[in-house]
Design a protein around this nucleic acid. Structure first.
Length: 306
RNA sequence: GGUGCCAUAGCUCAGUUGGUAGAGCAAAGGACUGAAAAUCCUUGUGUCCGUGGUUCGAUUCCACGUGGCACCA
């Protein structure tokens, strides 16, 4: 059971819907700090392309877990779970409310529900598995997984190299099956989550995304990406808005094409986010413009809970 | 004004020797356990410009109309 008088307001929604703007207002109203849950705004070197909060926005509320990592550091949802939990425990010493804001569904779920413990990947092993994938294709890894963990072999998406590789990696590294780590944890949390989903009509959302991409270009996205070119192989930069500009800088596509691709890939990303949350029935959905309705909803939930 | 060409999915176009049609892109739907803004799977959405005519049957052939493009005046 969660502690009844501590609340985590979870503000989630697709990219470009207007989370940041609303989060500042909610932070003021509930006198709560903001904990970011955006898998790309963790990195301080990525600003324009991730719609990183402006200095002014950062000054409007206490912000945590934004820009606290470098793109050269390895980060994961498991690390986020631990970090965010520690942070929240501290916040709840003084506050009844905390605000979790972000669009990274897996990370949000890791914090709210917990996630199984996996060993930290061994970089050497991963490198050799990648090499193997490159040489033999996914077939070799599939075959290996079938021998190492037949249970998981039967349920994994065998066409998805990332999944198959990860499972083989865990098996080889630990000497255990990948599936033996999957316990589906229901971990105790020192707060009660209130899930507020933000959404708009698809057309409106896409229009906002297109406009935001144009604005990023005006703000100097190309320059930012140029500066990060030496780091392009880091996972953090395998990101919409960055990979397309890398292609442009390599002369593979025109700037126009890159911009169109960024728009398209951002739209697709937004759709994937919505798909992820569609199965979570605890989320109450709102248009971000209905601020007072959202506040009322949160306050009503707090009352019934106390 | 005259002549020619074109009109098919949201866009660019293919095609049907007459039996109501299919590619690419865009899009839609889905999966997801330490790479998640990642990675992967599935799906063709249509007054075939309009009105007549020929025909058992017209998106296809014919006529006219409408719109677009090109050339000539």
């Amino acid at each position: 059971m969660s502690v009844p008088n501590k609340y985590l307001i979870v503000l989630l929604g697709p990219t470009g819907v207007g989370k940041t703007e609303l989060s500042l207002k909610l932070a003021k109203h509930f006198n709560s700090p903001i904990v970011s849950c955006d898998s790309r705004q963790f990195y301080r070197e990525m600003r324009i392309g991730t719609a990183f909060p402006t200095d002014w926005e950062l000054s409007q509320a206490q912000h945590y877990l934004v820009g606290h990592k470098s793109i050269t550091e390895r980060y994961s949802c498991g690390m986020f779970e631990i970090e965010a939990l520690d942070l929240l425990r501290e916040i709840y010493q003084k506050n009844d409310f905390a605000l979790l804001v972000g669009g990274s569904g897996l990370y949000i779920d890791a914090l709210l529900n917990g996630i199984d413990d996996f060993p930290t990947p061994d970089p050497e092993l991963r490198k050799s598995l990648h090499q193997q994938l490159k040489n033999e294709g996914i077939e070799g890894l599939r075959h290996q997984l079938k021998l190492l963990d037949p249970d998981y072999y039967n349920q994994v998406d065998l066409k998805n190299p990332q999944r198959v590789l990860k499972a083989v990696e865990v098996c080889l590294q630990t000497g255990r099956t990948y599936s033996s780590f999957l316990t589906g944890p229901k971990k105790e949390r020192p707060f009660k989550p209130i899930k507020v989903g933000l959404t708009r009509h698809r057309e409106e959302l896409y229009e906002r995304i297109n406009l935001r991409v144009e604005r990023m270009i005006e703000q100097g996205l190309v320059e930012e990406v140029k500066g990060l070119y030496p780091f392009r192989n880091y996972n953090a930069l395998n990101t919409v808005g960055y990979k397309e500009i890398f292609q442009y800088l390599d002369g593979e596509i025109s700037l126009e094409q890159a911009i169109e691709l960024i728009k398209r890939n951002t739209r697709r990303y937004a759709k994937r986010q919505l798909t992820w949350w569609s199965r979570d029935k605890e989320i109450a959905w709102f248009n971000p413009d209905n601020q007072s309705e959202i506040i009322q909803y949160i306050e009503r939930l707090c009352k019934t809970n106390s």
